[in-house]
């Protein structure tokens, strides 16, 4: 796949270390970064100023109080039930995420949760999350993470969150002219491999988008990244290239993932890839630790590495605006 540096070389968006030689550096992302050429803007910073930053970057076309036709929020990796040193109180941080959502200047129409709702697939863990998220008063669309399908191949997950889904829990829906596709890539994983979509889901996907106009904006959401972030840690999906081949005809494809507990972006042609913060605990940058497990940061810094993702679609613009904001 062609790799290029698409990022605005302004001082706040400078890529300081490009270890993978792919134009992507986490430290650069954590500051403030924009990419040009696609019409997309992504700002990574703490605090509620992000919409002002967005508006100031995009000028009069986008006012903070009227961002566009569709606004939604992605949250991810709540890991309800986790109680280790990396975050002994995941209830408090999920509640902080809810407060953040409720304080957004433009209220999202709905939420996407990109998996690892629970830590151990226990009913009481799902109950807790449901109870906390109720305070948003929003419809929520879920896809499972591997922590949500332990022990029962996802039966409880589907019963709770994906009753009308196909196969192992995939589905699609339309909102304000945008086509949303929820995919499952955490089941039937093969030894030594990455995330997997599987042939049945791929066939469904090909059929699902076949009759859509190429001008339809597409949002794909799934737990494990649908681009190869770091295969040594399993951060990628075996057959994502095949899935993306069905989306080539579309002018705007936004792929939203979780799993890696840190924000990352990449643009390849018509596709913008993005991974979200966790609401529970951070994980190390690729290759920056012996393994990808929960990362302990000083308690006062924890909320600066957790967060939510606000996504806005403006009719006529090529891509969706994706804005991460931390809980700090």
């Amino acid at each position: 796949m062609a790799k290029r540096n698409l990022f605005d070389p302004n001082p706040s968006g400078v890529i300081e270390h490009d270890h993978n030689n792919d134009g992507i550096d986490r430290r650069g992302f954590l500051k403030c970064m924009a990419w040009a050429g696609t019409g997309a803007l992504c700002v990574i910073q703490g605090g509620v100023l992000k919409s002002h930053a967005l508006a100031s970057h995009m000028g009069s076309q986008m006012k903070s109080h009227k961002l566009g036709e569709l606004s939604f929020v992605q949250i991810s990796d709540s890991h309800m039930g986790f109680n280790k040193p990396a975050n002994p109180d995941v209830i408090a941080t999920l509640k902080a995420a809810v407060d953040k959502i409720n304080a957004l200047p433009e209220q999202p129409e709905f939420l996407l949760h990109t998996g690892d709702i629970s830590h151990l697939s226990k009913p009481e863990e799902f109950d807790n999350v449901d109870q906390i998220l109720k305070a948003t008063n929003k419809q929520i669309f879920f896809v499972p993470g591997e922590h949500d399908v332990l022990n029962d191949d996802g039966a409880m997950f589907r019963e709770r969150y994906a009753k009308n889904s196909k196969g192992q829990g995939w589905y699609s829906f339309d909102k304000n002219g945008v086509h949303f596709i929820g995919l499952v890539n955490v089941m039937n994983l093969k030894a030594g491999g990455l995330g997997t979509l599987g042939s049945e889901q791929l066939e469904w996907l090909e059929d699902d988008v076949k009759h859509l106009k190429s001008s339809t904006p597409i949002v794909v959401f799934a737990h494990i990244p649908l681009w190869t972030v770091y295969p040594q840690w399993g951060w990628g999906t075996e057959d994502s290239t095949q899935a993306l081949s069905y989306l080539k005809k579309f002018g705007s494809v936004t792929v939203l993932n979780g799993h890696i507990h840190q924000t990352m972006q990449k643009v390849e042609g018509n596709v913008t890839f993005h991974t979200a913060f966790s609401t529970a605990f951070p994980q190390p940058a690729p290759g920056k630790a012996e393994g990808p497990g929960p990362m302990k940061v000083p308690a006062e810094q924890l909320r600066s590495v957790l967060g939510i993702t606000d996504v806005n679609y403006v009719q006529g613009r090529h891509a969706l605006a994706v804005v991460d904001s931390s809980l700090a």
Partner: peptide, 26 residues
């Protein structure tokens, strides 16, 4: 954390295994 699982191998042979939720672990 700290949970255990045991399996008794009756016959000789090489048994490959992995973590089914983190399949890079083999």
């Amino acid at each position: 954390t700290d949970d255990k699982y045991s399996y008794t191998f009756a016959k000789a042979g090489t048994y490959s295994y992995y973590c089914s939720i983190h399949p890079k672990m083999v």
